[in-house]
Design a protein around this nucleic acid. Structure first.
Length: 561
RNA sequence: GCGGAUAUGGUGAAGUGGUAUCAUAGGAGGUUUCCAACCUUUUGUCGUGGGUUCAACUCCCGCUAUCCGCACCA
């Protein structure tokens, strides 16, 4: 890109940020107190926009038919996030150069000298740091402070005083959905696949939030956890996208264009549910106004993929900050449910029936509790275990070796022959999870970026926000041509009727020339303006103006309300 | 977290050691009116705390925030 173009782009970004602030779309939070880094307000226009994006997202996934919506707490006990791996993953062990005071990650410093320093504990890192004493990447000195843990999650205490338990503000919404798995399974009457969605706030105490809304300390996210049976074929219908070329950047390769079906068949996308959600994500993003020409999917390279994931694709959107990851679609395998199972001892499994029952012949020995119990007392349990391992042809008395290595004599009266046929019709398994996770703030930023147009209308600057009608914060502006002869009254009553309709937002505006009012409406992307004029008083019709074409038609008031 | 730059009406900008200018937007009143028209009027303790000074928006220091590098993060 030439220097001129970059300057144009920067100027446009500045004009756009100014407009977003002036019109109450996005503005720095707590500004009268000096502001707070990484925190933003959605203003009177933006709040509505955010809500419509969220609602469109919810509706998009509910349309799949097997999705339920949850709302889990943002305050989360320590144990939950410890089980999920966040306490470990979101902690960085930092050390500071005592000469130049540059902070570095201890594991990064030790990377040249250790195969996997990421996996080391704080104490191990400390020992190794002293042993190796690497050079400071900033000043070259070899003098490090003590290693300290820096956690990217917000700490808090749940409860007061001595009964308070440590907790965090959640760094993602997913864990609440995993810990609710038993309720979800019951709700879905034990049948997979099904999904749970949640939109809400997440918190990460980023060291350095940057680039406007791209990295925030409190952010809006929307996640779907889709639970599948890994033994079942998915049978997704890809026909709606049979002629849609997706821009795909596969693991370290150049960008290619292909249909999602082809990508799955040639194993570029390794799992068909991941591919299906990529296609659904594409539809959603286009619906809310993302330019499909500036949307691509990039596969995580094997070394950047989270350790549990088997395939992961990011939807990246191109805007003023370049290509930005806005959605992550990860196949998480059974990692999360298994982790919570291990930590709690609770079963987080679904049942699958075998296509053919397995017949198992049991022929062997077991302990006769009535005689062996008193004989072996404390050892009885170990004896039972050992006896059940013996083959059917064993004869007693027998010197039997216990697990502990101890030998003990087992007499015939201590044992019973066990012979039966068992039919096993199925098994309990840990469902796999495919998770599309959406960064709503980043998506909203790009919706605005793609919709913002201030270079139209002759040579004069004129701003139009070409928002999709699904997300436009205001549906109608109602204008009286004059505020006299009863036009004002008629316009107000039309405005109130529109506001009374479910889900419709109307704004009444009577100040300034009609052109100025159209301009104000265009700037925040109102799709339609309704103008009450002299003719309206006679025949109860108004003009309806289209934002993007400027064309007007007459419609009856009765048809609008 | 480190380095550099910046902070003036709602927005975008001038400017000066003696409480401030322009454009644009907003409110009120009026003329006019279907694509940012006109007139009158109004809207600011110049980011914040401290210092220097008779006097600080202006000079100096701290803080906070914003932007750009580096680092960090997804």
């Amino acid at each position: 890109m030439s220097v001129d173009l970059m300057q144009n782009e920067a100027d446009r970004l500045e004009r756009m940020s100014g407009m977003l602030k002036r019109r109450g779309v996005i503005l720095p939070a707590f500004e009268i107190h000096g502001g707070a880094k990484g925190l933003y307000d959605f203003g009177p226009v933006g709040g509505r926009l955010r809500n419509r994006v969220n609602q469109t997202w919810i509706n998009h996934w509910l349309a799949l038919g097997n999705i339920v919506e949850l709302s889990c707490p943002t305050v989360t006990p320590y144990a939950v996030l410890e089980a999920s791996g966040h306490v470990g993953e979101f902690s960085d062990f930092m050390t500071v150069c005592t000469k130049c005071e540059e902070a570095s990650r201890a594991d990064t410093l030790l990377e040249p000298s250790h195969p996997n320093p990421d996996a080391l504990s704080k104490a191990e890192l400390q020992t190794l740091l002293i042993q190796i004493n690497p050079e400071c990447p900033n000043c070259g000195e070899q003098a490090w402070s003590e290693v300290t843990a820096q956690n990217l999650m917000f700490n808090t205490t749940i409860g007061a005083g001595s009964s308070g338990r440590p907790g965090f503000l959640r760094p993602e919404t997913a864990q609440g959905m995993f810990t609710s798995f038993p309720a979800l399974l019951r709700h879905n009457r034990d049948r997979l696949p099904f999904g749970a969605i949640q939109v809400g706030k997440g918190y990460r105490n980023e060291i350095s939030p940057r680039q406007g809304m791209i990295r925030l300390r409190e952010f809006n996210m929307a996640e779907l956890e889709y639970f599948i049976n890994p033994y079942d074929p998915a049978n997704h219908d890809f026909s709606p996208w049979s002629s849609t070329p997706f821009r795909l950047v596969a693991d370290g390769k150049e960008e290619q264009k292909m249909t999602i079906q082809d990508a799955i068949e040639n194993n570029t996308v390794r799992h068909d549910t991941v591919g299906y959600f990529m296609a659904q994500t594409y539809d959603f993003l286009v619906k809310v106004g993302i330019d499909p020409e500036r949307l691509r999917f990039r596969q995580h390279e094997s070394d950047e993929m989270a350790h549990y994931a088997t395939d992961c694709w990011d939807a990246e959107i191109h805007g003023s900050y370049g290509w930005i990851e806005c959605v992550g679609i990860a196949h998480r395998g059974c990692y999360d449910l298994e982790a919570h199972e291990k930590a709690t001892g609770k079963t987080l499994r679904a049942r699958r029936e075998f296509s053919e029952p397995k017949i198992v012949e049991i022929d062997g020995w077991t302990m006769n509790g009535a005689t062996a119990g008193p004989a072996f007392r404390a050892l009885a349990g170990a004896v039972k275990k050992a006896v059940e391992l013996l083959p059917a042809e064993a004869t007693f008395p027998l010197m039997c070796q216990l697990e502990s290595g101890e030998e003990i004599e087992v007499l015939p009266e201590h044992v019973k022959r066990l012979q039966r046929t068992e039919t096993i019709t199925g098994e309990w398994y840990i469902p796999h999870v495919v998770e599309p996770a959406f960064g709503i703030d980043r998506i909203i930023w790009h919706i605005l970026d793609h919709a913002y147009d201030d270079e139209s209308k002759d040579d004069d600057a004129y701003t139009v926000l070409r928002l999709s009608k699904h997300v436009a914060p205001v549906d109608y502006c109602v204008f009286p041509l004059f505020e006299k002869d009863g036009m004002g009254e008629l316009a107000r009553s039309l405005h109130r009727s529109l506001c009374g309709k479910a889900g419709v937002v109307s704004v009444y505006d009577s100040s300034g020339s009609i052109g100025r009012r159209y301009a104000r409406a265009d700037e925040i992307g109102v799709p339609h303006c309704l103008t009450v004029d002299h003719q309206s008083l006679e025949d109860q019709t108004v003009t309806i103006r289209d934002r993007d074409t400027g064309e007007q038609q007459r419609v009856g008031i009765a048809d609008l309300v």
